[in-house]
Design a protein around this nucleic acid. Structure first.
Length: 273
DNA sequence: ACTATTTCCTGGATGC
DNA sequence: TGCATCCAGGAAATAG
């Protein structure tokens, strides 16, 4: 499932491959589930647009589009959310079109951008130029004071708070569990119950985990691949996520799995308080 | 204003 | 081997 490190890897890969290219034509499949903007509007905005650059905002991929024929004047933003199983691939036209392909953008260079999403939790939309904002704070290098402030008075479990994109945009199930383990905090703890010291540790843990995961090209669980179809390898460094019953790397106690707000949560009962 | 629960969806895993 | 059932989960919608 693509979270911040995976989306960062994909967005950087896409930027490298398609920045400066021009979208000549767009095909959109019949499924409307992955479309947050009407299909006709997406096609109209993308066709004839130049991709200025592609970057990550929260868990979203944002492509800044300009007028290819009018001095690169800003046109719109193409916002892509990969959901659980979404992929945005750069492909050659002759490569086979895989099942669950919902959009194909033909580029002037001859390459194609293909959006593939079996489970259709992903979303495509177009918004006015320079308008897209993540709902919450950027976890990387977030202001420490602001970070602590986010959890004040919240009765919800810290795990749920970390997954709440309106607070922090970009953290998902993997990195929430991994960060809480490194900070020594149990996922069910009420967010408001965290001490100042614990909030500091959590902040540091998030920075560390995200930086390491980005360096590793993300975690390939489920069907995550980057823009080139390559897998990341941070899953090899997971200390608790999907390690139920396996020994904690620190104390050998079997890792526990519980369900919080419908999401599986993994932790060490001895190392996390 | 918050918080908790349900819903969307398909493929892979599991069980008989 | 085949078929039914269950489960994963991001975020929006719904309910409390």
């Amino acid at each position: 499932m693509p979270e911040l490190p995976e989306v960062e890897t994909i967005a950087n890969g896409l930027n490298k491959r398609v920045a400066g290219d021009v979208i000549e034509s767009v095909w959109i499949g019949s499924r409307t589930q992955p479309l947050k903007s009407p299909a006709q509007e997406i096609a109209r905005v993308l066709e004839g647009a130049r991709v200025e650059r592609v970057r990550r905002v929260g868990k979203h991929i944002v492509a800044d589009l300009s007028e290819a024929k009018r001095n690169h004047k800003p046109r719109a933003q193409w916002v892509i959310h990969l959901g659980m199983t979404g992929q945005m691939l750069v492909a050659q036209p002759e490569s086979e079109i895989q099942k669950h392909t919902h959009l194909i953008a033909k580029l002037a260079s001859g390459k194609e951008l293909r959006f593939v999403d079996p489970r259709m939790f992903g979303k495509l939309q177009v918004v006015p130029a320079a308008s897209f904002k993540a709902p919450g704070a950027e976890p990387i290098n977030a202001d420490r004071e602001h970070f602590a402030q986010l959890f004040k008075g919240r009765k919800t479990p810290i795990k749920s708070a970390l997954l709440n994109q309106a607070l922090l945009s970009g953290i998902g199930n993997i990195y929430a569990d991994e960060s809480l383990f490194r900070a020594g905090i149990r996922p069910r703890r009420r967010a408001a119950s965290l001490t100042k010291k614990e909030l500091e540790k959590l902040y540091d843990a998030i920075q560390e985990v995200l930086a390491e995961a980005i360096a590793a090209g993300g975690s390939s669980v489920s069907d995550y691949v980057d823009a080139d179809g390559e897998e990341g390898f941070f899953q090899l460094q997971h200390r608790v996520y999907q390690r139920e019953g396996e020994p904690c790397f620190t104390c050998k106690t079997p890792i526990k799995r519980i369900v919080i707000a419908g999401r599986s949560s993994h932790y060490c009962g001895k190392c996390q308080k």
